[in-house]
Write a protein that binds this DNA or RNA. Sequence first.
RNA 1: GGGGCGGUGGCGGAGUGGUUACGCAGCGGACUGCAAAACCGUUAGGGCGAACAGCCCGUACGCCGGUUCGAGUCCGGCCCGUCCCUCCA
Length: 451
Amino acid sequence: MREVRIRDTLSGELVKLEPREPGKVGIYACGPTVYSRIHVGNARPYVVFMLLRRFLRRLGYEVKLVINVTDVNDKIYDAARAAGVPSAEHAAEMIRLYEEDTNRLGLGRPDAEPRATETMPEIIELIGELIAKGHAYESGGDVYFRVRSFPEYGKLSNRDPADMDQGEEAGSASLKEDPLDFALWKAHKEGEDTKWDSPWGPGRPGWHIECSAMAEALLGADFEIHGGGSDLVFPHHENEVAQSEAARGVPLARIWMHNGMIRVADEKMSKSVGNIFQLAEALDRYGPQPVVAYLISGHYRQPLEFSERALDEAKARVERIRNFLRAPAQDGAGEEDEFVAARREAFLDALADDFNTPKAFAALFELIGEANKRPLAGARAAVADLLPLLGLEALLEEDEEVDPEAERLLAERERARAERDFERADRIRDELIARGYEVRDSADGPRLVRR
RNA sequence: GGGGCGGUGGCGGAGUGGUUACGCAGCGGACUGCAAAACCGUUAGGGCGAACAGCCCGUACGCCGGUUCGAGUCCGGCCCGUCCCUCCA
């Protein structure tokens, strides 16, 4: 099996993918908190990890991908209150929109999409274990993780707790033993319309514990890859590392894989900054393939600039692939050309080397460029074979059916051209363009292409 | 202030010691009745020269040093950007 390497945030190194059980990979990626509709930045990990799953399956791994949904949180309470609906209802609606938006990417669904509110027994059990082992304590209905009890705290984000700002939040008498401690369980407060029973009284889970519990419940401890946006490294993932390892004595995950932020004008796209572009809006405007192609146009770990120009370029790249696919096949017969085989290998090697999608794109375009110049046995089949790994397989099955009226116009234009009445021919071509067709003449006659 | 990541051609974006990444855009060409698609060339210049001949030097890697036969790549220093430092994909 091809060796796969991934950059691991914890060690900072390229790490070989070495599953617990040969051939089986568990991946957990942190999904959105559903208090509003997701934006383009939220879609990046979704696309990256959905495509990583495809690639690993292609290599023969059995893969289980989990992308969670955080459906109980302060922001959800706030948004629901502002909208005048129950928080559970608001969350349910946002989940519906999240699924609708991500479905439009055409990449399918993860294998599991657990929700915090459906994982309460596991969360409570995990917190109980931490208390039993002295890593957590109850205080006024809350439960906190005792950061000082886990000496390795800070290893993921490369911070020393001693250096961390310990200033107490102004004006709030804390229930914590130590300012570094973080909440595992939050006692129910006035105005919150949902709550769950626990040994520490009614309340709800803290943000970090839900991911530890869901990941462990679905993938087991010491699973292969834990991912998410780089803005989650601290505190979210740091806390997951601490609480899971403290409770179970083994690391939560083997590889920590983080994607870079989408930026707008050199600043992170973020709901709090307000510079967001919703995924649905991008899909409406550019279509799914250009959006997917855009999101993997740079290496997943690097920041990616969001701009109309970037989306336009992605669209142009998709068009180049599409034009290749709809050109008359020139593959010729016989065995796959050596050049084709070499580009396919380069493509797969690129993905195996820290999931380098831009490098994979380069291999694909080298193949297309060469095939545009000379008949290349197997080129088309190879492109068809590789496109799904980039999430662009829809380009293969595009319906090129032309409506009868357009066919009639095309024939009429041909008659006009035969009569050398070019004025009339061009008028008809304009009409076809208005109907959404582009005319492409060739030695084999004209064809209509949908725009 | 601390920690992480980065600064590559007109733009986006790969590349961790040794010849063109790749894509986009612009310009020119060829094709075409004209286009579109695909294709070819080009996007730094300067010097010698009568020359639209030929030759020579130079020609993307933030800046300055260093190591090396050879540096975008390694080392040191500096500048700049960005993410995180308990809302965040």
